Computed example of a mutant assay.
Amino acid sequence: MKRHQIILEKLAQEKYVEVLDLCKILGVSAVTIRKDLKFLEEKGLLFRTHGGASLEDPYINDRHVTEKEKISVEEKNGIAQAAAALIVENDSILIGSGTTVQALAKFCKPIGKLMVITSSVHVVLELIKFKDVDVLQLGGYVRHSSASVVGSYALHILENVSCSKFFLGVDGIDLEYGLTTTNLEEAQLNRKMLSSAQKTIVLADSSKFGKKSFAKIGNLDQIDHIITDKGVSTTVLDKLEDIGIQVTIV
């Protein structure tokens, strides 16, 4: 069927499509599109999501940081370099966990004094080599898979903290559901870090869009800036612009 072919071609281009967009393109009802997507999913050609479909399985399971380090390395390094350029002299920043924000620490070249608060053990190891960088390592239980801390001790430290920027890594970005990660406690800590920063900057390669994981961090309207790579679709970029989120493509 030609309609199915158009859906699959759009998916191949953008990796993620929404029901409402397909309705406009194909001139049919949402009921018809959902039937098409169900049929194509049964054939193993796509994965249905809430409000759309994805070329890849949209549900992310927890993976060890050493495995994630090997994925989209070039894209992550480009995103990290663009993020590092946003750090200014005498800045105070929060850095979450994940391989992309870990790369940010690697590319960080601080000018003057810099205060960093982080949950990531790897970020600390990257930044302690700078004598003008003061690092506050949040305390708590260390998650083996992410090499980062979680728990009430870390939350307590953040009660009396205010920083200019929060650099956040995520496992999934769903345009309707929001930002997610694989661990409930990590999501809770990220929410607290988000509330402790004047501006939140999400570092995510394009493979994270259209994906959803177990634990919700927050809605898209809670963040200010996304840095990603050129693999993100124009449809997604348009929707992020409508929300009012600044997007940097590397």
Rank of each mutant, 00 (worst) to 15 (best):
L175V: 13
F166C: 14
H156K: 15
L158Y: 03
V142H: 01
I128E: 08
I157A: 13
E126F: 02
F130P: 00
V149F: 07
D132M: 12
D132A: 09
I157Y: 09
Y141M: 14
Q188V: 15
G169E: 13
V150L: 09
G178V: 06
V149G: 05
E176C: 03
E159P: 03
L184E: 12
N160F: 07
F166I: 08
T182Y: 02
L158E: 06
V150D: 02
F130R: 01
L189I: 11
S148Q: 04
I128W: 07
L136W: 07
F166L: 13
V161I: 15
T180E: 04
L175Y: 09
G172D: 11
F130T: 00
F167S: 08
V170R: 03
K129Y: 02
G151Y: 02
G139I: 01
D134I: 10
T182A: 09
D171A: 08
G169P: 02
S145M: 04
D134A: 13
Q137R: 13
A147Y: 04
L125T: 10
K129A: 08
F167Q: 07
H144A: 12
L168K: 08
A147P: 00
D132T: 13
S164K: 15
L168N: 10
E126M: 02
E186G: 10
D174K: 11
L125A: 14
G178E: 06
L175E: 12
V149S: 04
G139A: 15
Y141E: 15
S145I: 01
H144M: 06
E176P: 00
V161E: 07
L125W: 04
L179A: 10
K129G: 05
G172M: 11
S152C: 06
V135P: 00
T182E: 03
G139K: 13
L179S: 07
V135T: 08
S146P: 01
G139H: 02
L136Y: 11
G178S: 09
K129S: 12
L138N: 05
N160S: 14
L127A: 04
V133Q: 05
V123I: 11
F167A: 07
G140T: 14
L125Q: 14
T180N: 05
A187F: 07
L189D: 07
F166E: 08
H156V: 02
E176R: 12
G151H: 05
K131E: 15
L184A: 09
L158P: 01
A187L: 08
L179Y: 08
A147W: 04
D171P: 02
V135K: 00
G140F: 06
Q188G: 00
N160M: 04
C163Q: 06
